[in-house]
Design a protein around this nucleic acid. Structure first.
Length: 557
RNA sequence: UGGGAUGUAGCCAAGUCGGUAAGGCACAGGGUUUUGAUCCCUGCAUGCGUAGGUUCGAGUCCUGCCAUCCCAGCCA
């Protein structure tokens, strides 16, 4: 695939390559396995992956598992699966763990101590906070900063050997307590934490901090460009400090880009977790979730996510992308790819009074006009059919050109029908519509050149199957779900109509054989996927996204 | 308030040496259409956060100001 899109990261790499033509480009995606990946991560994954591709380099997945109290093996599994899904490649040979480098991190810590760049500090967490100062006030040196190298060595080895209580000591860098950048005020490098690690078990009771471990991992793996989101900008000097003090003359270049926000959605692991815990949604892979697993179940394709990410570009400004831009990507792909089928979501019975009682017809209809090679399906027709309830009005609205008394419409691929009667129940609800058909209009065209303005979909009652269809919509009612009013929570912004379950949808017989993950365009309704949990012969369909609907807009406005 | 970053249309986003504002989404109008879909045309920033300055010429250079975001975890 030709990729003409470029961004400031490519410019940086191009310049580096000018200086060092033999530089091997290597990137990585380093998630912490403490939750499921979401659409925001897809951007980070693809930025890194596409750069590696573009420059014929290497892309690795690395679990940033330096804090066993927050991490879980369940998450490492889901993360690997999601990343592989997004990039469409196996990562079996490109999977690393921060914990692979614990020994090396420890050795390097010894070196820092030996070289006088780190010390063991006895300050408690509270005390440390006080010593650190604030945004406007500088901090103060720890009273333990002047311990001798020997003393620091002995104490740090003691920390590692489990001689001290959790939280009683830390290893800290000696940088500058008066730095305006708080990150550089003698940051903690190691903490004592007795927790079983998913990889290293109980081998360690001290664990390195992100700021210390991350540059080491990058350097050891051979990463050339360490790309991360903007909030790590302040940490860059520390990243470079660590590698400098460790004696790396040349080392990976950290650069930052803006993370992705999309209107009406959440891109925060913490907030997403809350939706799961509060049972607002049915798990991490609920189709309404913007987790990658949720979007996969919803029916979004990895390729549509890729094209979305390419379309929005990469920059450093804080932005919120319109959800419409995202929906465009999947519609655009499925418009071309998805086979077309007729499905009546909210059925209304139509009797064609002049059609012979027992007659049946079977039309041969193309599955997808964009792909004639895919062949046809058999579409049965008979005297009684279902149409969409919204396709009939007793008293038509202005410019309504569907079915109403006296009006003629086309049934897709079948006949022209004209309404001459209808029945209502005691509540005034229409129960049945009576029409006549024009035998000469078979196939949907009249030989006399007569035009109809409306064309509607339908399903033969006699041949219909009944299915469950889940209509998904955006999960939040607010453009920014995190913007909450006084006394409210994010949960108050949840869209109560985000899932509408239709248990009485009528589908063409062809659909009975649908397989999990098959995608279709339900004509005039939208794009749907056969749910991954569907039982054979009993497909359940999820709405991926509705079709654009200028009539709905017009009739509302 | 100290430090760091960002501000180009309703939303993203290009804009290398200063030379007269790409593209996509959305929206509006028109055409085609057996999906009010798709597709095809057309329109959509005398202006680039703002006020000055330099220059023949400034989104691009200089100065001041404003707004938004990030940082005070032994989280990442």
């Amino acid at each position: 695939m030709e990729n003409i899109t470029t961004n400031f990261l490519h410019d940086i790499i191009d310049k580096d390559l000018e200086k060092k033509p033999n530089l091997a480009i290597q990137t990585r995606f380093p998630p912490e396995p403490n939750g499921y990946l979401h659409i925001g991560h897809a951007k980070a994954i693809l930025i890194n992956y596409l750069i590696a591709k573009k420059y014929n380099g290497t892309f690795n997945l690395r679990m940033d598992d330096t804090n066993p109290t927050k991490e879980d093996i369940e998450y490492v599994k889901s993360i690997k699966k999601d990343v592989e899904w997004i990039i469409g490649e196996s990562l079996d040979d490109h999977l690393y763990y921060a914990s692979d480098y614990f020994d090396k991190c420890y050795e390097y810590a010894l070196k820092l101590i030996r070289d006088g760049h780190a010390f063991v500090c006895d300050l408690s967490a509270d005390q440390l906070r006080n010593y650190r100062g604030t945004l406007t006030e500088v901090g103060k040196d720890s009273p333990y900063k002047n311990r001798t190298v020997d003393e620091n060595m002995k104490l740090f080895v003691g920390m590692m050997n489990g001689e001290f209580l959790d939280g009683s000591k830390t290893l800290r860098a000696k940088i500058n307590m008066e730095s305006p950048n708080i990150v550089l005020r003698d940051p903690v490098l190691y903490r004592i934490m007795r927790a079983t690690h998913h990889n290293t078990g109980d081998k360690w009771c001290i664990y390195p901090m992100y700021d210390y471990a991350h540059p080491i991992q990058d350097a050891l793996e051979g990463v050339s460009h360490s790309l991360c989101s903007l909030e790590f900008k302040n940490n860059r000097p520390l990243y470079e400090w660590v590698l400098n003090k460790l004696g790396y003359g040349e080392f990976p270049k950290q650069r930052e880009f803006a993370r992705l926000n999309i209107s009406y959605t959440l891109t925060s692991k913490r907030k997403l977790l809350k939706l799961v815990e509060k049972k607002i949604v049915d798990g991490w892979d609920d189709p309404r979730m913007t987790t990658l697993s949720g979007m996969r179940r919803r029916g979004y394709t990895a390729s549509s996510i890729l094209s979305f990410i390419e379309e929005i570009g990469v920059a450093k400004s804080h932005s919120v992308v319109d959800i419409a831009q995202f929906e465009h990507s999947i519609r655009n792909e499925l418009n071309f790819e998805a086979n077309r089928i007729m499905t009546v979501l909210d059925p209304l019975k139509v009797v064609i009074t002049n059609y012979p009682d027992d007659k049946e017809e079977f039309f041969d209809v193309l599955l997808n006009p964009n792909h004639p090679d895919r062949g046809t399906r058999i579409l049965p027709f008979s005297k009684e059919i279902y149409i969409e309830r919204s396709d009939f009005m007793i008293e038509p609205a202005r410019k309504y050109f569907r079915l109403f008394p006296g009006n003629e419409v086309r049934l897709i691929k079948a006949y022209f029908i004209k309404c001459h009667d209808y029945k209502v129940d005691s509540n005034g609800k229409v129960t049945e519509v009576h029409c006549t058909y024009d035998d000469a209009s078979k196939g949907g065209q009249s030989p006399d050149g007569r035009k109809v303005k409306g064309t509607i979909h339908w399903v033969s009652i006699k041949h219909a199957h009944t299915c469950q269809v889940n209509l998904y919509d955006r999960l939040f009612t607010k453009e920014n779900p995190s913007a909450i009013d006084e006394g409210e929570t994010i949960l108050d912004n949840v869209n109560s109509d985000s899932l509408i379950i239709l248990s009485n949808a009528k589908v063409e017989p062809y659909l009975k054989e649908a397989l999990p993950n098959d995608r279709f365009q339900f004509m005039r309704n939208g794009y749907f996927i056969c749910d991954q949990e569907s039982k054979p012969g009993k497909p359940v369909f999820n709405r991926i996204v509705a079709l654009r609907d200028s009539w709905a807009k017009k009739s509302k406005g």
